[in-house]
């Protein structure tokens, strides 16, 4: 059970959160202008690193805010959390 630091509520049990996949994959400005290949890349392709990974989480059972977290996928350590719209912080 991870302890995830919600940027608003502070550390809470993982059970209160929903996972939203990789962060910083913005919805394309004009999907119609994209080729099938480009659109498929947006839809289906995500990073799967061993190590730090920026991802979206939602404090579903708490303040219902979506936020971003950098989590080390090998150790489950949450290295940083930041609010939507903020740039990904530099983590070790």
């Amino acid at each position: 059970m991870l302890l995830i630091p919600c940027p608003w509520c502070g550390p809470r049990d993982e059970a209160e959160f929903g996972y939203g996949g990789q962060a910083h994959v913005p919805y394309p400005q004009d999907p119609a202008a994209l080729s099938d290949r480009e659109w498929a890349r947006y839809l289906f392709f995500r990073d799967n690193p061993k190590g730090p990974h920026a991802e979206r989480w939602c404090h579903s059972a708490g303040c219902r805010r979506w936020f971003n977290a950098v989590r080390n996928t090998a150790t489950n350590e949450v290295l940083a959390v930041y609010r939507v719209g903020e740039p990904r912080p530099v983590t070790g």
């Binding site: 929903g18 979206r56 939602c58 579903s60 805010r65 979506w66 939507v84």
Partner: peptide, 17 residues
């Protein structure tokens, strides 16, 4: 019900603030 609300919030908060 819960999934749709999360869906609305996700688009509202992350894509179209």
């Amino acid at each position: 019900a819960a999934a749709v609300l999360d869906w609305l919030e996700e688009w509202s908060q992350t894509e179209w603030p």
